[in-house]
Design a protein around this nucleic acid. Structure first.
Length: 422
RNA sequence: GUGGGUGUAGCUCAAGGGUAGAGCGCCUGACUGUGGCUCAGGAGGUUGCGGGUUCGAAGCCCGUCACUCACCCCA
């Protein structure tokens, strides 16, 4: 029988990793709510056209990275490659704009892209993202960046760099893109093969090419900053002032471009130097044209997405909370096992994290099992104790124990052990 | 889609054409009602898969798959 393995680039998150995941997720929920965002849960798949229209038909994501399939009625559907498109769709579908001028939403969940897996890159990966609709105030840009920055800080992740840029309005970006194309066309022969292709399809992408000759050439080309209107310039200036007010360090970089077509004005990216090739752990920006593009009223918006797998790679061990102390029931003998089984249930009802090992028959084996499970306390109950309606409460680290009636055990443990949450 | 590296026990890895091994982990016992240490024993393998060369292949050759890193792309 051939073993069926998980799909390439799609990972199980095993029990030794889930506490770290819960920490990251809990922090995301707590901070987003603290910043006034509300959780939205959107579908894992949508009509393909939604992604094509919002992300851009010429992007790699839409061109070759989506998991696309036909519904039974022939509609083309795709697994979501990112979260913003679906959130905007839901925002419009449920008329959020008519309920309140400003809507702040966040989401958490898996995304899907057909890519070659490598360090920090998977076909199913998870993102935490926020979207703030209804204001073009630069302070909202700052708020979104601040939330992302504090998120990493709260998790104990350091050594990060915040890079910011402004791409201007759609018109300004187009004007710059054209100027760039003309300027670089003169050096066409000196550009790398890839960039020669980009010159036609998407000149902006040449700016973040890593080939040395290309970067050298682009440093002499026109800079986006010179193509920003006074409005866009002022907006960008105010974003930087806001970051200064909050004492969030940043590096302006006119060569930061983002892969998705819908970004306008502010764009930003937070990178970790220790992460290897896939070093962006959070990125986002303003997308003032997207709501309108998807059929809604003109609505300014700004947001970010953060990659949880990459964050997990950086999460310091001390940020992961210790599990609740375990109370282990070591019950043996005919009467002891019955009394111990009832006691185990009682402990759980009262909120203790409690377990036993049905396989272990001897006290020795039970204690070995308790030790392996890192139990804080072990309750020893054999036939003698069961007959006397008593138990032995053993402190595993101290190797001390006390003999006490079953009736007083719960109260005794309450003084010793912290309860589990639910 | 392209290129490099790696596939041997649950895990980390040896064996470099001649009997498939070690450490860790797991189980049992020494210790019949008290865990960690020690000692002894035990279980666990189609050497990723398929073909080829050879008297003989974990090893060499070809193919294939997977993992991994990088390009690309991006969170």
């Amino acid at each position: 029988m051939k073993m069926i393995r998980s799909v390439r680039g799609v990972k199980d998150i095993l029990p030794d990793q889930t506490p770290a995941w819960r920490k990251v997720e809990a922090t995301a929920h707590a901070l987003a709510i603290r910043y006034g965002f509300q959780e939205i849960r959107i579908p894992l798949f949508e009509q393909t056209e939604l992604f094509a229209r919002s992300i851009g038909t010429a992007t790699d994501i839409v061109e070759k990275e989506m998991y696309t399939f036909l519904d039974r009625d022939g509609t083309s559907l795709s697994l979501r490659p990112e979260g913003t498109a679906g959130v905007v769709r839901a925002y419009l579908e449920h008329n959020f704009s008519s309920r309140s001028p400003v809507t702040k939403l966040y989401y958490l969940g898996p995304m899907f892209r057909y890519e070659r897996p490598q360090a920090g890159r998977f076909r199913q990966f998870h993102q935490f993202g926020v979207e703030a609709f209804g204001t073009d105030d630069p302070l909202m840009d700052v708020e979104v960046i601040s939330l992302l920055w504090r998120f990493f800080h709260t998790l104990g992740i350091s050594g990060l760099t915040l890079i910011i840029n402004s791409l201007g309005t759609i018109a300004e970006r187009q004007a710059y893109s054209e100027a760039l194309r003309q300027s670089l066309s003169a050096r066409h022969a000196d550009l790398c093969h890839n960039c020669q292709r980009r010159l036609v399809s998407n000149p902006l992408r040449i700016l973040d090419c890593k080939v040395e000759t290309c970067t050298h050439i682009t440093r002499q080309a026109p800079v986006i900053t010179d193509f920003l209107s006074p409005d866009s310039s002022s907006h960008f200036r105010k974003v930087q002032d806001g970051l200064d007010l909050l004492e969030i360090p940043y590096v302006p970089n006119p060569y930061l471009v983002r892969g998705l077509d819908y970004y306008t004005r502010t764009t930003f990216e937070i990178t970790a130097s220790s992460l290897g090739a896939q070093n962006a752990i959070g990125a986002g920006g303003r997308y003032d044209g997207l709501v309108e593009l998807l059929g809604g009223p003109p609505t300014p918006a700004v947001g970010f997405a953060a990659g949880l797998e990459r964050i997990l790679l950086l999460l310091p061990p001390e940020s992961i909370p210790a599990p609740a102390p375990l109370v282990f029931v070591a019950a043996f003998g005919e009467k002891g096992r019955i009394a111990g089984f009832q006691l185990l249930e009682k402990l759980r009802i009262h909120g203790f994290t409690a377990d036993t090992d049905y396989r272990a028959a001897s006290l020795k084996a039970l204690l070995r099992s308790a030790h392996r499970r890192s139990a804080t306390y072990t309750i020893i109950i054999g036939d003698d104790e069961a007959s006397a309606h008593s138990v032995i409460l053993r402190n595993m680290a101290e190797k001390t124990q006390e003999y006490l009636p079953i009736s007083s055990l719960i109260d005794r443990l309450r003084n010793l052990v912290e309860l589990s949450r639910f």
